[in-house]
């Protein structure tokens, strides 16, 4: 059966970034969530959502990640628990698509947290800006086979190459905004018209 994919402007893309206690999906907790929607092709800062997440009592935050995020134990201790934050996240993901940079990591963390909280993963369409970078590079190579340059997948570098401003902060919300902006540039680059073109 053939479903027509909706035009991209009609989809709400919720850009999301997580800060976690480490890179181990099985062990490390989510410490912060930042989300911002792209509606009708525009980033709506006013609808941005961000929250710290109180990790389960036993979990400890890895030293490295504390330094990377400048999050302190004291800050997250007062934060709402994961289940509460996830219900906020869930309400947003059900509006449309999930937009992340490096979907592999963040989606895995989210799904694990959902499961731990006894929630059902809403299975939103996932758009990954890393995939879009690769798509754009393939398109560029197709147009110009002489150009063997490998694209950079790092968010900050990819943004620089896309001509986007450099953001100093790297909290979850700033990175979500950064991802949303990069998405707008890449969407145009690959001339995607529908949600399917973006996946």
């Amino acid at each position: 059966m053939f479903f027509r994919s909706p035009p991209w402007e009609s989809v709400a893309f919720w850009a999301l970034d997580l800060e976690t206690g480490g890179l181990d999906v099985r062990r490390d907790p989510i410490l912060a969530v930042g989300m911002v929607p792209v509606r009708e092709g525009v980033v709506r800062l006013g609808e941005a959502y961000q929250s710290l997440v109180r990790p389960p009592g036993a979990a400890s935050i890895g030293e490295k990640s504390i330094r990377a995020h400048q999050l302190l134990w004291g800050e997250v201790r007062e934060a709402p628990p994961a289940a509460e934050v996830l219900s906020q996240v869930d309400a947003r993901l059900r509006q449309g698509a999930l937009l992340v940079h490096q979907a592999g990591i963040d989606v895995a963390f989210l799904r694990r947290a959902y499961a731990a909280a006894g929630l059902a993963w809403p299975r939103p369409p996932v758009v990954d800006t890393v995939e879009l970078i690769l798509k754009a590079a393939r398109k560029a190579r197709f147009l110009n086979p002489e150009n063997p340059e490998l694209p950079s997948l790092n968010l900050a570098v990819a943004r620089r190459e896309a001509g986007l401003p450099e953001y100093q902060a790297h909290d979850a919300l700033t990175d979500a905004v950064a991802t949303a902006e990069l998405f707008l540039v890449l969407r145009r680059k690959i001339a995607a018209r529908t949600l399917r073109d973006l996946r």
Binding site: V42, R44, G46, E181, L184, V185, R188
Partner: peptide, 11 residues
């Protein structure tokens, strides 16, 4: 006012 701020991209 900043609560209504939007970010737009035009090629």
């Amino acid at each position: 006012a900043a609560r209504s701020l939007e970010i737009a991209f035009f090629p």
